[in-house]
């Protein structure tokens, strides 16, 4: 297990503050956050590249806080792979074991295993400058895995790839995680990538961990405005809850009263994912069961889905499939009805 306790790292103009994390062996853990949130600094701190001001990093009961990077037994892959341009692919892959003074027979055996696993045999004699984006990632993964790291650190491994290559590399990384039982810490700014790949996720913002948990839990139940907005809940409102005589809970925002299954009381925030809201093109009246009428104020075509914003108030955004949108024949200014399931109204105090 990788355990981080009360970690603080001070850099010029930036600090990581009071980081606490526990990452189980074999976990695929994703550290996700916007640009300049500190995710790469945290990854590099785990790798031993920044001096820790306070706190500890434990790797399987071993305090590695003050250890040099070369003694931590961690593998690192950067977004652009950081392959050594003066060495061939084979020399890049062998680098780790060579500097550790391992005999050539060991190096050859380990290299053969990884070359077979990643299917990069034809690349071995090539210069790294002659590789495609996907090939570079595979070589960087092989190089990092040569030393049998206890934890593999991936810094935006899919960030610089085209969509097709990204899909291939994503599958390759998941295959490696499954087949080798690796513990992986993956850094990304893309929440969809985080949910697609991560078993557990930590959302980081302004140098602090904002929320940690299983991917699905973070997706459904953000516990702060920052996380709700970052996880693309889109409909995030400050308001208050009122508890009715029958124990029903209602969230009040602007002119809207939303029934909810959440039990947070008093002033709080609501997050409603746009894909949870149903849009009905009939002139149904507003009702007590979270049905609201309003006019469409904005339509954004996103290809396979269409984002439709309706002024209730407040303005609420829902997602329609392209097919559903075409069938409803919607246009800006047209009155429509939104149905918000009470279970989709997630409340939290920030």
């Amino acid at each position: 297990m990788l355990k981080i306790e009360g970690l603080r790292v001070e850099l010029p103009g930036f600090a990581l503050q009071d980081i606490h994390l526990e990452i189980a062996n074999g976990d695929y853990f994703v550290l996700v956050g916007p640009s300049a949130s500190g995710k790469t600094v945290l990854l590099e701190t785990i790798a031993g590249m920044h001096r820790v001001s306070t706190g500890h990093i434990w790797l399987d009961q071993r305090d590695i806080t003050g250890l040099e990077p070369e003694r931590r037994q961690l593998g690192m892959v950067y977004q652009d792979c950081a392959l050594f341009p003066h060495l061939s692919v084979a020399e890049n892959i062998a680098f780790g074991l060579k500097v550790r003074g391992r005999p050539p027979s060991d190096i050859a055996r380990q290299q053969e295993r990884l070359v077979r696993l990643l299917d990069i045999g034809p690349l071995l004699a090539r210069r790294t400058t002659r590789l495609s984006g996907g090939e570079r990632q595979k070589v960087a993964l092989a190089r990092a895995l040569m030393t049998d790291p206890e934890v593999l650190l991936l810094d935006e491994p899919l960030g610089a790839l085209d969509p097709q290559t990204r899909e291939n590399v994503r599958e390759e990384i998941i295959k490696l995680h499954t087949e080798l039982g690796l513990t992986i810490i993956h850094v990304t700014h893309d929440f969809e990538e985080a949910v697609a790949m991560g078993q557990n996720i930590a959302v980081i913002g302004a140098g602090a961990i904002r929320q940690v948990g299983p991917a699905d839990e973070i997706f459904r139940h953000p516990d702060s405005e920052f996380v709700a907005r970052f996880t693309m809940a889109v409909n995030v409102f400050p308001g208050r809850t009122e508890v009715g005589p029958a124990g029903t809970s209602t969230f009040v925002v602007a002119d809207a009263r939303l029934l909810t299954r959440s039990t947070v009381e008093g002033p709080c925030w609501a997050a409603i994912r746009p894909d949870s809201i149903q849009l009905v093109a009939t002139s149904s009246e507003a009702g007590p069961d979270n049905r609201f009428t309003g006019q469409i104020s904005r339509i954004i075509n996103k290809g396979s889905v269409v984002e439709v914003t309706v002024d209730l108030p407040p303005a609420m955004t829902c997602l329609l499939t392209r097919h559903g949108f075409d069938q409803l024949d919607l246009a800006v200014g047209r009155p429509v009805c939104l149905v918000v399931p009470p279970a989709a109204v997630h409340l939290f105090q920030d």
Binding site: E44, A47, G48, M49, E68, P69, E70, R72, L74, G75, M76, Y78, A82, F84, F95, G96, L97, V99, R100, R143, A144, M146, T147, L153
Partner: peptide, 17 residues
């Protein structure tokens, strides 16, 4: 690129190496 040195360190190279 300083990250080349950083990667070399994580692979087991000392600062001299």
């Amino acid at each position: 690129d300083v990250r080349l040195e950083k990667v070399a360190r994580t692979l087991g190279a000392s600062p001299w190496q």
